[in-house]
């Protein structure tokens, strides 16, 4: 079953055609990787799908429903969750409170003015944190976490809404190699286990080729290849892009 469908997406910033005519889809339980050199338009794609940007042309469908240009707040309620390339968490809260806020939002409890927030969703937040191995740091201030921990917390926050589509823009940047694989393996388990559809970008090709079910390759805003790991490895244009671009991306 197709969860996300992007059809003919276009986006320009002034003169820069950041995304041109990109179409793809993600199925239930699928891990779809989007790769491409710096500036290829990956983050822009994520923002178009996640509602942060409105496409100049093209449509986005979520489980068949047109969600083009809908605000992120609404998409979240429809089951879209995401992490950002530069991890953002709520710095004035503890790790646990970060997840609690997300749980509250998901359960539509954010407009309650009287009862202390601290007491709500304590257990479920801790178990979400345990999933990403952050429960040990539940009481720490989110603002002082190491970057890798920040990324994991962000994932826990994203998962709090029990999404059907998870968009992850460079979820492992700043982590050590083993950590990366471990985290993405966890995501893969979630995807395959609960049917979560995952679209992610990643510069670590070991992660991409090891864990993605399918791979999209973007270059200068254009989709140049789609397919399984083997097919992408063999694709001439992909090789050209990665070699020709001086192999800057993520040390590749």
């Amino acid at each position: 079953m197709t969860v996300l469908e992007a059809i003919g997406l276009n986006k320009s910033f002034g003169g820069v055609h950041a995304v041109s005519d990109v179409s793809f889809s993600v199925d239930r339980g699928e891990m779809l990787a989007m790769i491409g050199p710096n500036g290829a338009g990956k983050s822009t794609c994520f923002n178009l799908v996640g509602g942060q940007l409105r496409p100049d042309a093209g449509r986005v469908r979520l489980a068949g429903q047109d969600i083009t240009g809908q605000p992120p707040g609404l998409l979240a309620r429809l089951g879209v969750a995401r992490t950002f390339q530069i991890a953002t968490v709520f710095a004035s809260m503890t790790v646990r409170e970060n997840v609690q806020v997300a749980l509250q939002a998901h359960h539509r409890r954010s407009w309650r003015f009287w009862r202390a927030a601290d007491t709500g969703f304590r257990q479920s937040s801790l178990s979400l944190l345990a999933k990403v191995d952050m429960d040990g740091q539940a009481g720490r201030a989110a603002g002082v976490l190491a970057y890798g921990d920040l990324k994991r917390l962000e994932l826990a926050v994203a998962l709090a809404s029990n999404p059907r589509l998870l968009l992850m823009d460079e979820p492992t940047a700043g982590m050590a190699a083993e950590e990366r694989t471990a985290l993405m393996a966890l995501v893969r388990r979630l995807a395959h286990g609960s049917g979560l559809a995952v679209l992610f970008t990643e510069h670590d090709m070991d992660v991409v080729f090891g864990l993605a079910d399918r791979i999209l390759v973007l270059n200068r805003g254009e989709l140049i290849a789609v397919g399984g790991a083997a097919a992408i490895r063999a694709d001439a244009r992909v090789r050209e892009v990665y070699l020709g671009s001086g192999a800057t991306g993520g040390g590749y």
Binding site: F90, H106, S110, W111, R112, E154
Partner: peptide, 21 residues
């Protein structure tokens, strides 16, 4: 209260706050 936390979330990281609904 939950509202206060949501408000603070929107201040700390508006994009993230939107992304959680």
């Amino acid at each position: 209260s939950p509202f206060g936390y949501a408000l603070r979330a929107a201040r700390d990281a508006p994009e993230r706050a939107e992304a959680i609904g």
